Amino acid sequence: MARLRSLVRTSRRWSIRRWWTEGTRGTESSRRTPARRGISGEHGPCGGARGSLGFESNPNPPAAARCPPRCPMIRGPGNRQKRAARSKESSMRDLEDRIQAIEDRTAIVELTGRYCHMARTGNVEGIVDLFCEDGVMESGDTCEKGHERLLGVYREAFSGLRPLPCVHNHDITLDGDHATGCTSVEIRMVHEGEAITAAGHYDDTFRRVGSDWKFEHRDLTIYHQVPHLKGWA
């Protein structure tokens, strides 16, 4: 009886080993031999057997053999909408920044032009109001800071002559609420009945105060200042 039981156990072990070996060989063979599409009895990429026309004969293949779903992070319509929204938002910010830069440059150019008109009319208080409270005006050996000192400088400068400045060639660099610029200037004036011509440029530093741009520092460099009849060269 014991011998019979031993033979049964041995037979079972050999049967299991044979089943496992044949199954493994079959799997390796199927892996090495790619299936052709459209041939009856073969399996498609999704696990179902294909008929002679290549259609799936098994509409419900095993879950493990089904094709994986598309990744929503790559092709989902919701992600396309999000990307489009982000792109639109970025474009709007870029457009707003460009419009703001145009407005700032225009305001600074108008500031320099307003300075010329104030000088032409002799409006000392108006000129000083174009400067920051701690604004500086520098020209040659003269360097004054603050509204009180600037009032004295311009009153003295306009006491004996009336300049007619014309500015052009604006070169402005923006940096948030600050800016720098270089502006060419030609000045015509009459001194003791004689026409005088001068030319030079301003090196300016600007600052945004509230919603307005003002001069933080003006440095005037004069190239020449000579009688008009004599000429500058």
Rank of each mutant, 00 (worst) to 15 (best):
E28V: 12
E96Y: 11
R37Q: 08
T221G: 04
G48K: 04
E125W: 02
G41S: 10
R80E: 13
G78V: 06
V136N: 02
H191P: 00
P62E: 05
S87G: 12
P59F: 06
V185F: 09
A84D: 15
R218L: 03
H178P: 01
R12M: 12
R9A: 06
A65I: 09
E148R: 03
D175V: 03
W19K: 08
H224W: 13
T112C: 12
A198E: 04
T106S: 15
A84Q: 14
P59C: 08
M137F: 08
A85R: 14
V226T: 15
H217N: 10
I99V: 14
A179W: 01
P34G: 13
M189W: 00
R188P: 01
G51Y: 02
E110N: 15
T180S: 13
W20V: 02
H43Q: 14
R5P: 00
E125G: 06
L229P: 10
D171Y: 14
R36P: 13
T205R: 14
T21P: 00
R9W: 04
V128W: 01
A195H: 05
P165L: 01
C166I: 03
R80I: 15
N169Q: 15
V128I: 10
H43G: 05
A64P: 03
G146L: 01
S57V: 07
V124E: 06
I74V: 14
H228T: 07
D94K: 10
G76C: 12
E56T: 05
H147D: 07
T24W: 04
R162G: 00
L53S: 15
D94Q: 15
I39H: 05
G135P: 00
E194F: 01
R207A: 10
G76S: 12
E192V: 05
R12H: 06
W19A: 08
K88T: 08
D177T: 11
E186Y: 12
T112H: 02
C182Y: 01
S57T: 12
A84G: 09
H43R: 15
L53W: 11
L161C: 07
G44A: 11
R162K: 07
R86Y: 06
M1H: 13
T106K: 15
R75V: 14
S15Y: 06
L220H: 07
V136D: 02
S184Y: 07
A2I: 02
G26E: 11
R13F: 08
Q81N: 10
G126W: 00
E144S: 12
L95G: 10
G181P: 00
M73R: 13
A49E: 03
A101L: 00
A157C: 05
E192L: 08
T21N: 09
M137W: 01
N169G: 10
P69E: 02
G146E: 01
D97H: 12
G47L: 05
M118N: 05
G48D: 04
S52G: 06
C46L: 09
N123K: 06
G193N: 01
A195D: 06
R105N: 06
L220M: 07
S139I: 05
G23P: 00
S184C: 09
R13S: 09
S87K: 14
R3C: 04
C46Y: 04
A199R: 07
P62W: 03
S15G: 09
I222E: 11
S30Y: 12
E89Y: 09
K230V: 04
T221E: 03
S11Q: 03
D212Y: 11
P227E: 02
R188Y: 09
M137R: 00
R66L: 05
E216Q: 15
S52T: 08
S159P: 01
M73Y: 12
T21I: 08
D175W: 05
